[in-house]
């Protein structure tokens, strides 16, 4: 075993190499690795979040769809109800109109009848007098019997 200056040479070399490694190699590689680790972790987290988002979105979509269906159904129902109501109302209106027209017609008819009756009444007395004159062949005092005839006409 020849121990000599080599031992010192090796020590110096060793220190120099370690310092170079410490300054120019180790931090760079570990920094890159740490950064990659972080990137991968972020990526995984993002993927997780995305899948959760997707799930949420799907749930929301399902929800919306269900709501829309329910709404459509309710709209349809109310529309049907409304339609039935409208039909009902129309029927009612029609009936009322019909009755109103009928009433008006009846009133017209009555009025007509009354008018005819009035006309008839006004002529009844004359007719009666003419008839009585003819029957009695005598002149009848018109003023004396007028009241009686009028009464008769009124009772018609």
């Amino acid at each position: 075993m020849n121990l000599n200056l080599t031992i010192i040479g090796q020590s110096i070399t060793f220190i120099v190499f370690v310092l170079i490694c410490m300054k120019y190699i180790w931090p760079l590689i570990t920094a890159a690795m740490t950064e990659r680790q972080k990137k991968i972790a972020d990526g995984l987290a993002a993927a997780d979040r995305a899948s959760k988002d997707l799930e949420l979105a799907q749930e929301k979509a399902t929800h919306t769809l269900r709501d829309a269906k329910a709404e459509a159904a309710s709209i349809l129902e109310s529309a049907n109800k409304r339609a039935a109501q409208i039909v009902e109302e129309a029927k009612e209106q029609a009936r009322e109109e019909g009755e109103r027209i009928k009433a008006a017609a009846q009133a017209d008819v009555e009025q007509e009848v009354n008018r005819a009756k009035e006309k008839l009444r006004s002529q009844v007395a004359t007719l009666a007098f003419a008839g009585a004159e003819k029957v009695l062949e005598s002149s009848v005092d018109q003023s004396t019997h007028k009241d009686m005839i009028d009464k008769l006409a009124a009772s018609l």
């Binding site: 190699i25 590689i29 890159a32 950064e35 990659r36």
Partner: peptide, 20 residues
């Protein structure tokens, strides 16, 4: 030692956060 340093220095320069 220089081979070691050169190899790892190359690695240190190439090191990036992408796919190695």
């Amino acid at each position: 030692g220089i081979i070691f340093l050169a190899l790892f220095r190359w690695g240190a320069k190439k090191a990036h956060a992408g796919v190695p």
